[in-house]
Design a protein around this nucleic acid. Structure first.
Length: 638
DNA sequence: AGGCTGTACTG
DNA sequence: CAGTACA
DNA sequence: GCCT
């Protein structure tokens, strides 16, 4: 009985609530005592069962998971006293308690639902079991269900007192035999947020497979098609794109293609040799935003996974993960939408050039929403579809109507005619030059890269070290890197890394890991123990420089290296190396896999006031906390 | 009116 | 500190 | 630019 008083005192202030809660528990208690005894089931079993039901109810997890959870929190196995099997216990739960507990709807006593109070409650009772940095306390059991549903094995560890380092070591040591993957927090929240943004949410295939097989399947397994297909017949496309496309300035200079198409393609038709059907290169930066602001009516609905509906989604809405939301619906099916996006994109860029990044974001969101539409906007009435949702207000509405009516947008035309805008755009494409510097240069009469080169020859002071490097490789850095070149670099770096220290290993993250058909740069995580990295990382950089692959260093920070590499006969390209100790690996991988917009989305859901378990994790902002969302990072046992 | 992701390097 | 960069 |  004590536990219920405890529960009550952990709950919210309104004493009225407290009293009611205790009353309910008393009622339950007396019901326990009145029940007839059954073979092998005594009252203490019933209490255990009741606790299980409450736990399961509050976490939204299955009884079975709740059982595991209780096991970790209780010093003795709940089923061990007396001869009550786990199955019997579950039976008792189902027949005797679950309906009653559900009826009580204990959640209503927790004013902030899944929030802090509930977590504290769990924490107090050591029902919180998993290293808090890895999982939301109240969701650990849920994750366990997820793993099980996919035929996997999982285990929950008591870790309330555990710091992050210990916890992750433990996880690495103990879990690897059956589960060397998965760091995944709060599936529910992500679904919740996804639906509130009217997105589809569902784990990517590689994650589901990993869950099923209890071992991580590298996402790149789902990506190999590009390697084969892209190389020969149509390989020139990306390069042409670079020249004809409108370029975005900083921070992400180059036009990118959309979301990891391959992952998606694989999911639709896993086995078939399904043509990844290139995105045309006309796509611009804004496209990636669609991932998170897409339209309700999604084409994914036809292929939703079996388990989705179980995730506490009352309406069986199709779900998918925010990280894989499809962006645009390719093909030139919607000419007017294309036109609108193009014109708004022009304005968006011009905003970016100035300091007006937030305004640009506004445009970006609008563009994303239009791209995700599956109907062409041809009449003024159609525009209402857009304005009814979030993200498009009166100003943008007016502009869209202007385009629909006249086919033109005055503001966009002004921008294009504006010579200064063009100049800023070009100068911003130099690595290290942003809008402010570009404006300074223009004020000095420098309006193009050619002029800039001349100017530097006379006065090398006008650019700093990095900007000069960026200028030197201006043309090369504008090119995108084909996947197969990235793969070669990966091989090379791994070789170097292994030669330096056998215990280190690397992962290529970034857009490569997201399955893009080409990449703007290469992000490589070098993983190992912190001690080994301390020497190893610097040595790796030195080695690579010695072999002539790294041609210039941009910045060298603590465990962080930005530079420029080149293989003989190839263009120069940007490479980022990050030293990642084991404990940080899942988080680092999540962050550095991006996309940037995805990270932004995630971070915006994180409560910044949450205490962080370990300072080091904060190096990867996404993980500042535990309670919050999200997603998938993978953790390789070894 | 004020927020809009969070961290880190360079000069 | 501003500017630029990283995801 | 939009949202609260």
């Amino acid at each position: 009985m004590e536990i219920f008083h405890h529960l009550a005192s952990s709950l919210l202030d309104p004493s009225e609530n407290k009293a009611r809660f205790v009353d309910h528990c008393h009622a339950l208690h007396s019901r326990v005592l009145k029940l007839p005894s059954r073979s092998g089931v005594n009252n203490s079993h019933r209490f255990v069962a009741l606790a299980l039901c409450v736990c399961s109810h509050l976490c939204g997890a299955s009884i079975d998971s709740a059982f595991c959870v209780l096991q970790t929190m209780a010093p003795s196995d709940p089923s061990a006293e007396g001869a009550c099997s786990r199955e019997q216990l579950a039976q008792v739960c189902k027949t005797e308690w679950l309906p009653a507990v559900n009826e009580l709807n204990l959640k209503k006593f927790c004013n902030d639902g899944e929030g802090a109070k509930l977590r504290r409650l769990f924490h107090d009772y050591y029902i919180a079991f998993v290293p808090s940095i890895l999982f939301s306390h109240s969701r650990a059991a849920l994750l366990l269900d997820l793993v099980r549903e996919n035929g996997g094995e999982g285990k929950v560890f008591a870790a309330s007192e555990m710091g992050f380092r210990e916890a992750s070591t433990l996880i690495r040591e103990k879990t690897s035999p059956f589960c060397n993957a998965i760091v995944c927090a709060d599936v529910n929240l992500i679904c919740k947020y996804s639906t509130s943004y009217q997105l589809d949410a569902r784990p990517p295939k590689w994650l589901r497979d990993s869950l099923r097989d209890c071992r991580i399947k590298h996402p790149s397994l789902y990506v190999k098609k590009y390697e084969e297909k892209n190389c020969s017949p149509a390989k020139r496309k990306p390069h042409e794109a670079n020249i004809s496309c409108i370029h975005l300035p900083s921070p992400t200079k180059r036009p990118r293609s959309t979301v990891a198409k391959v992952l998606t393609a694989e999911m639709v038709k896993p086995a078939k040799d399904h043509n990844p059907s290139f995105r045309s290169p006309r796509e611009k930066e804004g496209a990636e935003a669609d991932e998170f602001r897409g339209q309700a009516s999604s084409p994914l609905s036809s292929r939703r996974g079996e388990r989705d509906s179980k995730l506490e989604q009352p309406s069986a809405k199709p779900l998918s993960w925010a990280c894989e939301i499809r962006t645009s619906f390719s093909g030139g099916d919607f000419p007017m939408n294309e036109k609108i996006c193009e014109l708004l994109g022009v304005v968006q860029e011009s905003c970016l050039m100035k300091k007006d990044q937030f305004r640009a974001t506004g445009y970006q969101r609008a563009i994303a929403r239009i791209r995700a539409l599956r109907q062409d906007i041809t009449t003024v009435d159609d525009v209402a579809v857009l304005t009814s949702g979030k993200g498009i207000g009166t100003k943008l509405e007016r502009k869209i109507i202007e385009i629909v009516k006249t086919g033109r947008l005055l503001q966009a035309e002004n921008v294009l005619e504006n010579a200064e805008g063009t100049a800023v755009r070009q100068l911003c494409n130099v690595w290290g030059i942003g809008p402010v510097k570009a404006l300074h240069l223009i004020a000095q009469g420098i309006k193009s890269v050619t002029q800039l080169r001349d100017a530097v020859r006379h006065d090398s002071q006008i650019l700093d070290r990095n900007q000069k490097i960026g200028l030197r490789h201006y043309e090369d850095l504008l090119l995108r890197i084909p996947r197969r070149h990235v793969a070669e670099l990966e091989k090379f770096v791994r070789m170097v890394v292994k030669s330096v220290d056998q215990s280190l290993d690397i992962t290529v993250a970034g857009s490569y890991l997201r399955g893009k058909k080409d990449c703007g740069d290469v992000d490589i995580l070098i993983c190992g123990s912190s001690e080994q990295l301390r020497f190893g990382f610097v040595k790796v950089v030195k080695e690579m420089r010695k072999k002539g692959v790294l041609t210039d260093d941009l910045t060298i920070g603590q465990g962080k290296y930005f530079g420029i590499f080149r293989f003989p006969g190839r263009p120069h390209a940007r490479v980022d190396l990050f030293a990642v100790p084991h404990e940080e690996y899942p988080f680092a991988l999540l962050t550095y896999t991006g996309s940037a917009i995805f990270n932004r989305y995630v971070n915006s859901k994180v409560d910044p006031n949450c205490e962080s378990v370990d300072g080091n994790c904060n190096r990867h902002p996404i993980f500042g906390d535990t309670n919050t969302c999200l997603l998938v990072a993978i953790y390789e046992g070894r």
